[in-house]
Design a protein around this nucleic acid. Structure first.
Length: 245
RNA sequence: AUUUGUUCUCC
């Protein structure tokens, strides 16, 4: 079974969910034993090619066949709604999970918070943030990073920095993705110097900039026409053992 | 073995 789901996942990663799907069909006909992971892999595969409709069908089918959808199944579905820009659909599914046996977990909430932030619906995202805590699900670094992005998106730099401090002051360590997100957002708004300060802060906190950090900053320098600094940065990248790619 | 957050390219 492991081998089959690896194979199916491989098809999905190659963008050939159809091949995985027809394999499932054959296995079903042969009466081959299956498990929930194979269904989940395909549900997720369909989501990644924008076929939420197929995922819905497959979810129904697995239930029909007596397989219980789990967190993976539902979380992929939630992501599917979010990807098509249907936050309402995602929230509806969240409520449904709330009532069922598969309670929303940190993945579920993070998916929705991120989607709302990307759609600039920060206050809605903050409501979900509060809601998840009320349900006893602790936000993690992913939740915070999504919110920071949402704040930056609206130019709420001060609020974003406060949230970052809140993380630092609490038990949640910002990771490289958190810093990279901030650096990138600042650069895109032409606040390259603040971006540099953010990188310094990252280093102070024990982080190490990576190629993504540097590329974001490089893009920032180029966007504001500071080409001298851009080329100096390229030299620095080589020095730091992170050569431009 | 399957689910969530970062750079560039396309929009």
């Amino acid at each position: 079974l492991y081998s089959i789901s690896i194979l199916v996942n491989c098809y999905c990663n190659l963008g050939r969910v159809d091949l995985g799907f027809s394999l499932l069909g054959k296995l079903l006909k042969l009466g081959y034993p299956l498990n929930v992971v194979i269904f989940n892999t395909l549900i997720n595969g369909f989501i990644h090619i924008g076929r939420l409709d197929q995922s819905v069908k497959l979810l129904d089918k697995m239930v029909e066949l007596g397989f219980e959808p789990d967190m993976f199944s539902y979380n992929s579905m939630v992501k599917g709604f979010c990807r098509r820009g249907d936050n309402v659909g995602a929230l509806r599914l969240l409520k449904k999970m709330d009532k069922g046996v598969c309670k929303p977990d940190v993945f579920t909430y993070n998916t929705i918070v991120d989607s709302l932030c990307k759609d600039r619906l920060l206050s809605e995202a903050l409501e979900i943030f509060a809601y998840m805590r009320s349900k006893g699900i602790s936000p993690d670094v992913v939740t915070y990073t999504a919110l920071i992005r949402g704040m930056c998106n609206l130019g709420r730099w001060k609020q974003a920095k406060e949230l970052l401090s809140e993380m630092l002051g609490n038990n949640i360590a910002p990771d490289i993705i958190t810093y990279n997100t901030l650096v990138d957002m600042l650069c895109k708004e032409g606040m390259v110097d603040d971006a540099r300060a953010t990188i310094d802060l990252m280093i102070e906190n024990g982080g190490t900039p990576d190629i993504i950090t540097y590329n974001a900053l490089l893009d920032g320098y180029c966007l504001c026409g500071r080409m001298n600094e851009a080329s100096k940065l390229m030299d620095l990248m080589v020095e730091k053992g992170c050569p431009p790619d």
